[in-house]
C-alpha cells in the first residue's frame, strides 16, 4: 500500500521530462540513420534504443520503484536476451 502511494508521488514534471527525452532520442535515431557510420551504425542505433527502453522500464513501468524480485526477473530476461544475441553473433560474424 505504502509503495502504491510512492508511485503516485512521482511528479508529472518527471514524466514529462522522460517523454521529452524519448522524443529527442527518436529524433537522434532518425538523424544518425542519415549519416554513414559504417560498422558502428548498428551499435549506435542499439545504444540509443537501449537508453530509451531503460527510461521506459524505469519510469513508465515503475521498475525503479518496485520490489527487488521484479528487478531480478527483469535482469534474468535481459541476461537471456544478451546471451541470445551473443550466440547468434557466433553465426553472423563468423560466416
Amino acid at each position: 500500500m505504502e509503495k502504491e502511494h510512492k508511485h503516485n508521488l512521482i511528479p508529472y514534471g518527471t514524466y514529462f521530462l522522460v517523454w521529452l527525452s524519448l522524443i529527442s532520442l527518436t529524433v537522434l535515431t532518425v538523424s544518425v540513420a542519415g549519416v554513414d557510420f559504417g560498422r558502428i551504425a548498428l551499435f549506435l542505433a542499439l545504444t540509443i534504443a537501449a537508453i530509451k527502453s531503460t527510461l521506459v522500464i524505469n519510469y513508465f513501468m515503475h521498475i525503479k520503484f518496485d520490489q527487488p524480485i521484479f528487478k531480478f526477473f527483469l535482469a534474468v530476461a535481459l541476461a537471456t536476451l544478451a546471451t541470445i544475441f551473443i550466440l547468434t553473433s557466433t553465426d553472423v560474424f563468423f560466416r
Partner: peptide
C-alpha cells in the same frame, strides 16, 4: 533449453563456429 536452438540448423549454411558452440 534457451541456448541450443541452432542445432536445428546444422546443415542450413550457418558458420562453423556456431555449429561447434551449439
Amino acid at each position: 533449453g534457451y541456448f541450443v536452438w541452432a542445432h536445428h540448423m546444422f546443415t542450413s549454411g550457418m558458420s562453423e563456429t556456431a555449429r561447434f558452440v551449439f
